[in-house]
């Protein structure tokens, strides 16, 4: 499989992404050749990212775990059909997102939410939390918990498609083109959805933003 085809399709601009795609493709070829254990490396590599996407879409830890596992199983079952037209992670994300969207449509009325703990050791999170809780007399943990719930509420108020775009762009850091590939729509549609979703989130989270 030529790597240029992958690059042209997914616009993996950075060299790291390019190397990553090539490495994934090599592993996929091993699995397709019969080395089933090689798939475990792909699971280990992508499980947290896929879980993060699905968790932010569903807002529920248990559902997210199930959907992530299902996405890996589906990918494993269909790996012989993976031709390399897109990068493996785009393909895997597409499976996970489609499974999540299907699940959310089915269980729209009976959804409940559970929040994960924010890793306060991460530098970016630490900095943001410090900026938010520099006022005296504020219980930091309680404030972070409240903010987390408010964030989750605001995300769940978005439609499924808008939530997906925001999650893939802001949380997972994918490019517009990659999101368009995953969601099977145009880049313009992705930008439009992102703009609209951010407007709604801005209105919801205004009290927590500081100028």
């Amino acid at each position: 499989m030529d790597a240029t085809k992958i690059l042209g399709k997914t616009l993996v601009a950075s060299p790291e992404r390019r190397q990553e795609a090539d490495a994934d493709l090599a592993i996929v070829r091993q699995v397709q050749a019969g080395d089933v254990a090689a798939f475990d490396r792909l699971i280990t590599k992508y499980r947290e990212r896929v879980f993060g996407i699905v968790y932010n879409l569903s807002g529920n830890r248990e559902d997210a775990a199930d959907l992530t596992q299902d996405a890996f199983i589906k990918a494993f079952q269909s790996i012989h059909r993976f031709g390399g037209q897109s990068s493996f992670f785009t393909w895997l994300y597409r499976i996970a997102v489609n499974s999540s969207l299907s699940h959310l449509r089915k269980s729209r009325l009976r959804s409940f939410f559970s929040l994960e703990r924010i890793d306060s050791d991460e530098p970016v999170a630490k900095e943001i939390i410090a900026a938010l809780t520099d006022k005296t007399g504020v219980d930091r943990d309680a404030y972070v918990r409240e903010l987390q719930e408010k964030l989750n509420d605001a995300m769940q108020k978005l439609s499924i498609r808008h939530r997906t775009v925001v999650t893939l762009f802001e949380v997972d850091g994918l490019s517009h083109q990659e999101i368009a590939d995953i969601m099977d729509c145009s880049v313009g549609t992705v930008r439009s959805r992102l703009h609209y979703a951010k407007q709604l989130l801005q209105a919801e989270l205004q009290p927590y933003m500081r100028r």
């Binding site: 947290e48 879980f51 993060g52 968790y55 932010n56 830890r61 929040l115 994960e116 703990r117 924010i118 890793d119 306060s120 991460e122 970016v124 999170a125 900095e127 943001i128 939390i129 410090a130 900026a131 938010l132 520099d134 903010l147 987390q148 964030l151 995300m155 925001v166 999650t167 802001e170 949380v171 997972d172 951010k198 989130l201 801005q202 989270l205 927590y208 933003m209 500081r210 100028r211």
Partner: peptide, 22 residues
Amino acid sequence: HDRKRPVTLEDLLRLKRAERPA
């Protein structure tokens, strides 16, 4: 100086990245 930086929507959404299971 860091504590006085403005907190944007992107910052708040970036907090979601830090939500990780044990």
